[in-house]
Design a protein around this nucleic acid. Structure first.
Lengths: 227, 227
DNA sequence: TGCTATTAATAAGA
DNA sequence: TCTTATTAATAGCA
């Protein structure tokens, strides 16, 4: 089940744009040998400081160019290394630009995270580790949950997930598996117990929506209650 | 509520690595004037074809280098243009590497999408458009939903969301707002009606987990039922 | 948008 | 990892 050829991300190469591909006979090392006739029409690329670009027009041009560059890099990385990459971008005026199978990746991301936290068993956790012995309650198959407990169980899972991700988020943004601490199960349990008391309260406000929280169970809810 | 300074993404600059920063007095235009004493120790960067790297070791090195480069580019874009960027990366052996406030962005992404589809009102939709007149059922505030209808309502929302995102996904991976068609509300309604009949069936299998689907309401469920 | 002069990223090697 | 020779990305203009 190694998704080597999962090149769905690759399809995202710069779409409509087919650059005419510079004339081949003036390529590599003509850099300096170019005839000095050209009266230096531009200043060429200038070094810039990495801080917010003030001029709106310029900022938009840069956003467009660099976003395209970023997506191209992502596509290349995806192909070269057989990786799956998803990018979500919000421009300052909240336009969405995304790359890759974001939805699938998000799903996988959400599913993988707790498993990763459990032991971080290395690189070779293929399919087949579905044995349910010695797992935490939130790792067990759902069939073992009684019908009448299901709603609470689901809520508990969502809550636990939120706590975990919040905790992880606090560990820094550039969050790689290497950066993840052992994350003992006790911590998850502590989080769970701590937040369990707010379960009912949360149940009541679960449709208010909060900026930081993940209310994935109700993804379409309006972000704010009717005023 | 324009989140201009929302530079949380920026914190993600290459973390632990502080490169010694090349000696300043051998910088820009020493490229050619470099003393020819150096017997060409390396071949320098070579042009490579963008296809999967076969040699595992080399592939991993490239993955590490380019991922770091990608994240750096993302950070720069974020700062320069005041954009919010999130990246999810799965290496081929399913290690997760992410950049930015992925969770927050995913949440926003999910919340924004239907609104975007509605009319795509342009760039200036700041806060304050919370009027609930003329909205589709799935756009209304949740307070208006009766308590006993809530469960079905939530399920309907999840389902609609999945249908929308699937549909959008089919329009190509590099999915920008410009690429989005008008997407009439009728289409959403059609999707909704089409899938409504499978609601109960889906309800039954909602814990089986499928690779493609988004079962965000139960993020922690085991991917497969107990064998 | 398309074009260059430059800067920035990075494939090989050590 | 660190360095270097090259290629790739892109800032400023037209």
């Amino acid at each position: 089940m190694v998704d080597v050829g999962e090149a769905s991300t690759i399809t995202c190469l710069p779409p409509a744009k087919q650059k005419p591909l510079r004339n081949p006979n003036l390529l590599a090392n003509q850099k300096k040998e170019t005839t000095p006739k050209k009266p230096r029409t531009t200043k060429g690329r200038q070094k810039i400081e990495i801080k917010e670009i003030e001029v709106e027009n310029r900022r938009q041009v840069t956003f467009s160019k660099r976003r395209s560059g970023l997506f191209k890099k992502a596509a290349e990385l995806s192909v070269l290394c057989g990786a799956q990459i998803g990018i979500i971008t919000f421009s300052r005026c909240d336009r969405i630009y995304s790359f890759g199978n974001v939805d699938t990746l998000v799903d996988k991301y959400i599913r993988k995270t707790p498993v990763m936290l459990r032991t971080n068993p290395g690189c070779d956790v293929a399919a087949g580790d579905e044995n349910h012995d010695g797992l935490m309650w939130w790792e067990r198959a759902v069939e073992s949950v009684a019908e009448e407990d299901m709603e609470e169980y689901k809520m508990a899972l969502s809550l636990l997930r939120e706590n975990l991700l919040t905790r992880i988020s606090q560990m820094g943004n550039d969050r790689t598996v290497e950066n993840l601490p052992a994350f003992p199960n006790e911590m998850a349990m502590a989080d769970w117990k701590l937040s369990n008391e707010s379960l009912m309260a949360r149940n009541d406000r679960s449709y208010l929506g909060n900026d930081a929280g993940l209310d994935l169970a109700v993804p379409f809810m309006s972000p704010k209650p009717r005023q």
